[in-house]
Design a protein around this nucleic acid. Structure first.
Length: 422
RNA sequence: GUGGGCGUAGUUCAACGGUUAGAGCACUGGACUGUGGCUCCAGGUGUUGGGGGUUCGAAUCCCCUCGCCCACCCCA
């Protein structure tokens, strides 16, 4: 049972030690890898005009229909906490005329996203994503670059056994034909489809391919495949991408039934899943969105990106790696007020030298100070009392193996720093 | 939005409808008066999530409500 007057809102979590160190490691690794691929950080506001998201994500997607945190500000404007990152970055790209810079322009971002959903395992109302967006190239090489970068990031932080799926959902030229084909395929068995799929039939027939209801899975056997309906250009693009992925040694499967939940995707879509997560098993996903920049009032600019879900990655990492709390290098136990004052000086000096040092409380017993040092897993303990101040020499003890020694008080700082280097 | 499971100490969990709701861990102090871990001893905490009802009597049964978890849906 929790105490206190307040709790975090439903679906929102505090991220604390020791977990926070996993988060920091992931973020650090991501920055390193993105840097080597030439992606630069971009930070956009967490709130945008509601229309930014409606326009990009799509009027009748679930996100827009029922999952957005939308409010009116005091000026009566409708504003929304971002449910994903791409829309904001595209808005930023267009607003700041970044297309005037040499193409392609490549960015990454990290931060919280918000969706008003019922929380469950791996799903939160405030969740964190790391994402990348590359603008200005329609070449399959950039698709491969983005996917390869994702693969390197995931393996770089120690995740194995992830499943890469790729697909192409065509462009504005070939998708209408495919929709037609789907509609006529399902026409005869329409009445047998589940309620949701009957709705999808008119709203977004591609999603029928993604339905998990047993009967619908039956019915769609033999349904037309997107891949058979791609136009020449899309087919060529996809083919080239697959060749590049082969060449890079990225293991993947082509899944023609993979459909993404955002309307802006064109051509390449991909998703990375894990078997160890429960129902919400996507750890990262992305795709190409060649029309969005234009939609936002910019010049025709092809683009591609992905986002990965921090909580899910952290969850996977916690299964295999053990993260300990960081521990101080030095603990100064002090006996008596005079030593207590001397201790303040010593830890301050050590800290100025970049050493994590903690000071005991001279009003509590040496035993309890030692116990605290032990609980903190401190590396070395120095015990200072009147005798030590008199003689200028102090004993140290290494908690791990109980080794002891002696050093001049004035030499503690050098002793520690040299010890670190050795 | 729809289902299912669960709410007892800081934490993990006990308590056939029946005394004053207990135990491990953790925490603090001591045994060991200036050296941690191991052992032993001592110490404290609960509106049994909240509200109502049934009953002589409710942590226990019923209703409502809130919260958490899981799943559907959807997605990172």
């Amino acid at each position: 049972m929790s105490s206190g007057l307040y709790k975090a809102l439903k679906g929102m979590k505090d991220i604390m030690p020791p977990d926070i160190h996993i988060w920091q490691d992931i973020e650090k690794k991501a920055r390193e890898i993105f840097a080597s691929y030439g992606y630069l950080e971009i930070r956009t506001p967490a709130v945008e005009s509601t229309s930014v998201f409606i326009r990009s994500i799509g009027e009748d997607t679930d996100i827009v229909e029922k999952e957005m945190y939308t409010f009116q500000d005091k000026g009566g404007r409708s504003i929304t906490l971002r449910p994903e990152g791409t829309a904001s970055v595209v808005r930023c790209y267009v607003e700041n005329n970044l297309h005037g810079l040499p193409s392609p322009q490549k960015f990454y971002y990290m931060g919280p996203m918000f969706r008003y959903e019922r929380p469950q395992s791996g799903r939160f109302r405030q969740f964190y994503q790391i994402g990348v967006e590359a603008f200005g190239s329609s070449r399959p090489e950039i698709d491969a670059e983005v996917i390869s970068m994702l693969a390197h990031l995931l393996s770089g932080i120690g995740l194995q056994e992830l499943h890469f799926q790729v697909n192409s959902i065509g462009c504005e030229k070939c998708r209408p034909g495919f929709k037609e084909a789907l509609l006529s395929f399902f026409e005869g068995s329409f009445d047998e489809l589940c309620v949701d799929c009957r709705r999808r039939y008119s709203q977004n027939p591609l999603r029928i391919l993604d339905c998990k209801v047993g009967r619908c899975i039956e019915i769609r056997k033999g349904a037309p495949s997107v891949l058979d309906h791609l136009c020449i250009d899309c087919r060529d693009h996809f083919q080239k991408l697959l060749e590049l992925l082969e060449m890079l040694g990225i293991r993947y499967t082509v899944n023609p039934e993979m459909v993404r939940g955002l309307d802006y995707y064109t051509r390449t879509t991909f998703e990375v899943t894990s078997e160890n997560l429960g129902a919400q098993n996507a750890v990262a996903a992305g795709g190409r969105y060649d029309r969005l920049v234009k939609e936002f009032g910019g010049p025709e600019t092809p683009a591609i990106g992905f986002a990965l879900g921090m909580e899910r990655i952290v969850e996977l990492l916690k299964m295999t790696l053990k993260y300990d709390l960081p521990a101080p290098e030095v603990f100064i136990a002090v006996i008596g007020e005079r030593a207590g004052r001397e201790g303040v000086r010593i830890v301050d000096d050590l800290r100025a030298g970049g050493v994590w040092a903690e000071l005991g409380d001279w009003t509590s017993s040496l035993k309890s100070q030692m116990r605290r040092a032990d609980r903190l897993s401190a590396g070395l303990v120095f015990v200072i009392g009147d005798d030590e101040i008199q003689s200028g020499h102090v004993k140290w003890k290494k908690l791990a193996d109980a080794a002891t020694g002696e050093v001049r008080i004035s030499g503690i700082r050098d002793f520690i720093i040299e010890g670190k280097q050795a």
